[in-house]
Design a protein around this nucleic acid. Structure first.
Length: 162
DNA sequence: GCCAACGTTGGC
DNA sequence: GCCAACGTTGGC
């Protein structure tokens, strides 16, 4: 049977001072997890928001993820892939006391965007006005529709969108 | 550094 | 189970 699951698209935010796109690449190069030695490179831990966790539970291997720098940069800088589907977050110390355990996934860097796509440019694009990123600014893991994904890729191929 | 948005917590 | 208080995120 052809399990024809469509590839899904996501967007994940990180403060570059805490964990940047380059840090992700460095972890994969080192083959280890910088902050949690022995854990997987690219482990997306620490999410303690149910909406974000729900998205991570829905992620499948091979799904693609925009990597967004929050606080500083405010732009999508690269594309990562889901390398490992969700598992219990080893940094969730209260997991046992709670019914719902928080989870993490592993992501790996796939490629840089030729031109990072800024939040400003996204907000200025009417085609992207319904993006979860725009509608729900605080959500750290959000869903991206195929149409939004394609539009952002188009923007990333254009000369500097600033 | 401020403040709006919004998720979470805890008292009732 | 409601809702006010509180805490955190993240853009500006």
């Amino acid at each position: 049977m052809a399990q024809k699951t469509e590839k899904q698209y996501w967007l994940m935010k990180s403060e570059p001072d805490a964990y940047s796109w380059d840090d992700l690449a460095a972890e994969w190069q080192a083959g280890d997890n910088r902050d949690h030695p022995g854990q997987n490179p690219g482990m997306w831990d620490g999410v303690r928001n149910y909406a974000a966790a729900k998205h991570m539970r829905a992620m499948k291997t091979g799904d693609e993820v925009f990597f967004y720098h929050s606080q500083k940069g405010l732009e999508i800088v690269g594309i990562a892939g889901v390398a490992t589907e969700h598992y219990t977050d080893p940094t969730d110390s209260k997991a046992e006391e709670r019914k719902t355990k928080f989870v993490c996934v592993d992501i790996k860097p796939l490629r840089n965007l030729d031109n990072p796509v800024s939040l400003q440019a996204i907000k200025a694009n009417p085609k992207l006005s319904d993006m979860q990123l725009v509608r729900q600014g605080r959500l750290s893991v959000s869903a991206v529709t195929p149409e939004e994904w394609a539009e952002i890729l188009r923007m990333a191929s254009l000369p500097s969108s600033s």
